[in-house]
Design a binder for these strands. Structure first.
Lengths: 151, 151
DNA sequence: CCGACTTGGTTTTGATTCCGAACTCGCTTA
DNA sequence: TAAGCGAGTTCGGAATCAAAACCAAGTCGG
């Protein structure tokens, strides 16, 4: 391996994700989308974001395939922004962020609790090894290069 | 509740987390910290980030309690930045981001795979209901206000 | 039929923030 | 003595941001 290599060059899915999500507003826009916000002005009011910035961010998210721009009224033409499956797949990321904030910043007063729909009890996020059929929140985790890299 | 209320005002742990992590560089800095990067110039080279920006970000992360600035050499004085427990607790967030990038951007060639240290098999991230003793990756999830908010 | 209002933007105009390059400081090594 | 290194600080100029005004297409109230 060349010694000029650095992690920024190396393919990294965190980097790739942040190329789409990595600015001050985008993750908050996605959070709102999860909460059911769909319309331009609702995003704008809710986030208190400047219009041109919101316009640009929504466009980028649509291009990235995370939101879909859909006509919901023909005359006058009105558009709404909805989560695509790719966007909906962000839920573990947002949940992880929320739980981290709950635990380390808002400590004893989590503003929102996620519950198992079937039983109504609070739920947790964890790592699972389907092979060992084991669940753990601690980090008994190692990493190795994927199939794109030979080791 | 006042109708001027919006989600930005409302206490939100995602918002709180992003107040610490929410700019173009911070999450990448944390990723590097997880990979074992500790020194100023290593971060700088690895991320190709401007020095003043890195200085400011590291300071903020130390103030936030996510990194610890530790003297590792007395003469000349040299400091390194290490994850605190609060910082280490970000691993589920970073894993979620990585897996999302794996699945939706890098599709068939995940650059890095996480494995269960005990058995070496790939591991997954999921939601768990300890009450029902059930694990699921799909979203059978509802949310309700936490104890800080009356509904 | 006229004017006010709504949604979903675009344009324009300063104020921040960012980046690159050069400089500093304390110390080590040749 | 000079050169080099780690860890920053100090400058401009460039990109980005926010606030406010403007626009367009339609709707509603009187």
């Amino acid at each position: 391996m060349a010694d000029t290599e650095n992690n920024a060059d190396r393919a990294c899915s965190i980097q790739a994700s942040l190329d789409i999500l990595g600015d001050r507003w985008t993750i908050l826009i996605m959070r709102d989308a999860f909460r059911g916000v769909r319309r331009f002005d609702d995003f704008r009011r809710d986030l208190d974001i400047a219009r041109p910035v919101l316009t640009e961010r929504l466009k980028r998210l649509v291009v990235a395939g995370v939101l879909e721009r859909r006509l919901y009224c023909e005359r006058p033409p009105r558009y709404e922004y909805r989560l695509t499956p790719m966007g909906a797949a962000l839920s573990p990321t947002l949940v992880a962020l929320m739980r981290w904030g709950d635990e380390w910043i808002n400590h004893d007063e989590p503003p929102t609790v996620l519950v198992h729909e079937a039983c109504g009890e609070p739920l947790d996020q964890a790592f699972v090894c389907w092979h060992c059929d084991e669940t753990f929140t601690q980090s008994a985790i190692a990493s190795r290069p994927g199939n794109a890299v030979t080791h």
